[in-house]
Design a protein around this nucleic acid. Sequence first.
DNA 1: TCTGGGGTCCTAGGACCC
DNA 2: TCTGGGGTCCTAGGACCC
Length: 415
Amino acid sequence: MTGGANILHADLDAFYASVEQLLNPALRGKPIAVGGGVVLAASYEAKAFGVRGGMAGRKARELCPQLIFVDGHYKEYQRLGDAAIKVLDDFTPLVERISIDEAFADVSGTAHLFGSPGTIARAIRRRVRTELGLPISVGIARTKHLAKIASQVAKPDGLVEVDPASELAFLHDLPVELMWGVGPVTRGKLEAEGIRTIGQLANTPGHSLRGLLGEAAGDKLGALAWNRDPRAIETRHRARSVGAQSALGRKPATEAVFRPTLLYLADRIGSRLRAKSMAGRTITVRIRFADMHAITRSTTLPAPVAATALLAEVAEDLVRTALFTHREERVLTLLAISVSHIERCPELQLELELGLADERQRPGARRGAARWTADRAVDAVRSRFGWEAIAYGPLAFDRGRAVPDTFRELAEREL
DNA sequence: TCTGGGGTCCTAGGACCC
DNA sequence: TCTGGGGTCCTAGGACCC
């Protein structure tokens, strides 16, 4: 432990939009948005008009009438994101990737090879620019939280190093919403107490913060405001849940709508689980209605499952029951399934051997065996010919306004 | 053209156990 | 008649992140 500023946070600027401007020079210097109904990413030229990721497309167009909407090149995002992370890998093995376009790196052990953290950061930025054609901002600090804030301050296309001797001076003038974990709701609660800067937050008594934000959030923000962030770089995470969702536009709340959708979602989740020999015990469905209000229903099974048909049936039961108690809701706008309590299951037959089918009062375990065989067959076809080569059920899932599968894969975390 | 998709963590109440 | 205290697991909802 040297106590020096050895943590880098590297973050590609307006990543999807920058890739589109790289691929199509006619888009450079112009306000563009990737997506349509929802803005997935906005270029800096669009951000200048107030356009933000996650914003409804219509609102974005209101803010910026000359906004150019482009379809995403998702495979290129994956390729270029991976390539940028590889540049970090060239300087240290201690790289923690947290999304497609950002990562932490600990360079405390590599100064003798590559120079100071500042030298390394400049080399990274230069290489990503010249080799990939993309702008990337880097923050350097003694802790992950501060490095991440520094990269935000550095944007666009900048570098900020926080001297350990003046950390709090740097931190305390910044607005609270730059902190990890402060979103619109928390910002609003703090604002109501007159707390706008991280310095004001730091000088608020701990019991007040806990009362305002809850025990865990109060303690966490208090610690971060004094830059007491003990987290180390983690090169490997284990996933705690796997899920999939589909926005439906506006569809009637009927079996004919939810059954094929849930089968498609269960298929995506089941094949990901089986590919890693994993299975999960808790199945949660999420249903969103016309007013965008959502409910969740979940159940925990006695044994982990990964079979597509079983996941789909449990999800169907949950949705059917929930819709029965919300009979006044006639319109669905989104369905989701998530599987948690996941664990490694080298023998995926487990769910059959434990007689889960009997416990759930299904016709019999033999059906389970047939399903397992069917899943293996589908998985095998896909491993040779791709995911699209084969689908469950006679009905192709109505894609509606759903995004391409390549976009879904971008957001998937390693299991 | 009202609002994508994949995740993590926390809270609060109730069941259940010792 | 009165009625402890701690722990774990489960469910539903919500905030937040990229």
